[in-house]
Amino acid sequence: MANLTPYRITGPALISFSGGRTSAFMLWQILQAHGGTLPDDVVVAFANTGKEREETLRFVHECGSRWGVKIHWLEWRPMPDRFAEVGFNSAARAGEPFEGLIALRGRLPNPLQRFCSRELKVEPIKAFCRSLGWERWQNVIGLRHDEGMRVIKKLAENDKGGHRWKSAMPMAKAKNTKRDVMAFWSEQDFDLGLHPHEGNCDLCFLKARGTLVAIIRAQPGVEDWWIAQEAAGRRFERARSYAEIAAATHAQIDIFDVLAGEEYDAECGLVCAGDAA
């Protein structure tokens, strides 16, 4: 029998659900450790940027419905509220929160200034926790035992302080790995339905060029929103533009795409996929 002790969470605590297989595995283990029902001061939240894949939205909804757990769907809003609570049907699907943030900032995020993950994920979750009357809390995130550097970084952040929360990583404590996650989902009758390289954010600018090419080829038109944001000469990454990548992709008749080995099933913002694994 699996050791569920690391998954017994003491509140107040926020379980950050990215919408990926790893964080869903973590949520299931936490539920089992608490007999199927979370304590009143332990809540689950999913922050939607409007650029999550439809598969991700369906998966989040299905996890909540099948497992009988309330998942709070949050979206960024301008000050002072910082967030709105939505649901599966009302969740943005055309990048509206992300686009609104870009308009407010007057510039695009980039690999060195990833304000998108901070503003669209971290801040709405923080504002939501404050709305519950919490001053301090645990932020429970889905980092596995085999994601060593990410775990070390979060432990260092805990030691440094400066936040209203401390990160809890029950999967790392329980020594659960990617193999455990995939074995779990192979036994379920529903799944996320995405390849690991696809990730929850459809064309995140941190993805390798080969990965972007593969996704654009598989889903023509997915690049349109990103191209529109790069109008007037703006770019998410200086060395490339989405228009250039899309044009080259559609001009190529056949190519073997080189996909990056990085897995993007991580909590964007709290654990940005661009950080070293």
Score class of each variant (00 low, 15 high):
H197D: 14
E55Y: 08
E135N: 15
V122H: 05
D265I: 08
L143K: 12
F17V: 01
Q188Y: 08
T49V: 12
A168M: 06
E262A: 13
K126S: 12
G142C: 04
P170Q: 03
Q32Y: 04
P39V: 03
G100I: 01
A260F: 02
N139I: 04
L57T: 09
V86S: 06
T211D: 01
E75D: 12
A183H: 11
E147R: 08
N89L: 14
F98Y: 00
S167V: 09
V140E: 04
H72W: 13
G35D: 05
K121H: 07
I255E: 14
I216E: 02
F190N: 06
M26W: 13
G36E: 14
A84T: 12
A47I: 04
G100V: 01
T5Q: 10
P78V: 10
L132R: 15
S90V: 04
I15F: 09
T249D: 07
D41V: 03
G19V: 05
A260E: 15
R234H: 02
A228E: 12
A273S: 11
R118H: 13
V181S: 00
G36T: 11
R53A: 15
N158E: 00
M182L: 15
E223D: 12
A239C: 07
A103K: 09
G68P: 04
A91I: 12
R179P: 02
R21F: 11
A84I: 12
R21Y: 10
C129Y: 10
I227Q: 10
M171L: 15
G11R: 03
V69I: 14
V69L: 11
A239D: 10
R118P: 05
E198V: 01
K70S: 09
A246L: 06
V222A: 14
F236E: 07
A218S: 15
A2I: 07
H72K: 06
K153I: 09
R217S: 05
D81L: 09
S117V: 15
Q138A: 01
A33P: 09
F59L: 11
N48E: 07
C268P: 00
N139L: 15
K175M: 06
D159Y: 11
I71W: 15
E237T: 03
W76F: 13
R235S: 06
S23G: 05
F190C: 08
Q29Y: 01
C272I: 08
K166D: 02
R130H: 10
M1W: 07
G233P: 05
Q29K: 15
T177N: 05
M169V: 05
W67G: 00
L108H: 00
F256K: 00
C204G: 07
D224Y: 02
K126Q: 14
A92D: 13
V140F: 01
P12N: 08
S23F: 03
I15D: 00
I30L: 10
G36R: 10
G142M: 01
I15R: 02
C272Q: 02
V151L: 06
V151I: 11
A239G: 11
H61D: 14
G35P: 06
P124A: 00
R179A: 15
L108Y: 03
D275P: 00
A214N: 13
I253P: 00
I245G: 00
R82F: 15
E262Y: 13
T5G: 03
L194C: 09
R118M: 10
G133K: 13
K121C: 04
S18H: 07
S131K: 09
N158M: 00
N3L: 10
E135W: 07
A277L: 14
S186H: 11
D275L: 14
L38C: 06
